[in-house]
C-alpha cells in the first residue's frame, strides 16, 4: 500500500468511484488489497489460494459498489464480501466428489458391493451417530479441516479424529453383521 489512507479518504473514493471515476476506483481497490490479504492469510495461512480469494473479494467490491448506499460503510461492505469468499473457499476445499471419486470408481469395489454400501439405510446410519460425531461430520462437510474443527469445539485434532474412527468402527461392525446375515439368505431373498 503506497499511500496513507484514512477512512475519510476511503469514503471520498467510494463516492467518486460510484460516479464513474476510474482513478478513484483503482485507488480504492489498491487500498483494500492489503487488509484483504492480511485477513485471508490470518484465516488460511500463506497459500496460493490467497491470491484468488483477494481477487474475488475485490471483484465483489468492484461489482457491488453501486449497492453501497452509505459511502462511509465501506468496511462492513468489504467484510461481507470477504466472508462470502471465505465460505465459498471452504465449500470447494474437498468436496466428496473430488476427494473420493476414485474410491467410488475403484474397480476393486464390485458393483454389487457398491450398491449394497451406498443403498443401505444411510438415514438410519446417520441417526445412529453420537451427537458429537454427527457435529464433526457436519463441520467436515461444511469444509473445515480437522484442526479447525478441533479449535471450534474446544478439543484436540487427535481427539476429533478418534471420534470419527469410533463412529466408523461402529458402523462397520453393524455392516459386518448385516452382510453376514445377507450371505446366509438364499440368493432369491436378497
Amino acid at each position: 500500500m503506497a499511500e496513507s489512507v484514512d477512512t475519510e479518504q476511503l469514503s471520498a473514493w467510494v463516492g467518486q468511484a460510484k460516479q464513474g471515476d476510474e482513478l478513484a476506483m483503482s485507488r480504492l481497490l489498491t487500498a483494500l488489497e492489503s487488509p484483504m490479504r492480511a485477513f485471508f492469510i490470518s484465516r488460511i495461512g500463506r497459500r496460493p489460494d490467497v491470491d484468488d480469494l483477494v481477487q474475488n473479494a475485490l471483484l465483489r467490491v468492484h461489482r457491488g459498489l453501486q449497492d453501497l448506499k452509505d459511502d462511509t460503510r465501506l468496511k462492513a461492505f468489504a467484510m461481507k464480501g470477504a466472508l462470502y469468499e471465505l465460505q465459498d473457499f471452504y465449500r470447494g476445499r474437498y468436496t466428496p466428489k473430488e476427494s473420493l471419486f476414485d474410491i467410488h470408481q475403484a474397480p476393486e469395489i464390485s458393483d454389487e458391493m457398491h450398491a449394497v454400501g451406498a443403498n443401505l439405510d444411510v438415514e438410519r446410519a446417520l441417526s445412529a451417530l453420537s451427537d458429537k460425531a454427527r457435529r464433526i461430520i457436519e463441520l467436515r462437510e461444511y469444509g473445515y479441516k480437522y484442526e479447525e474443527i478441533a479449535e471450534m469445539i474446544g478439543s484436540t485434532e487427535a481427539a476429533i479424529k478418534m471420534q470419527v474412527k469410533r463412529a466408523f468402527d461402529r458402523m462397520r461392525d453393524a455392516l459386518g453383521l448385516f452382510l453376514l446375515w445377507m450371505s446366509s439368505l438364499p440368493l432369491m431373498e436378497r
Binding site: P96, I109, S110, M113, H114, A125, L126
Partner: peptide, 21 residues
Amino acid sequence: PQLGVALVRWFAMAEQSSRQW
C-alpha cells in the same frame, strides 16, 4: 472388499448429512 463397502457407506452417509444440511 468389506472395507470398500464400509467406506462407500460412510461417504454416502456423509453426503446424506450434507444433503440434510
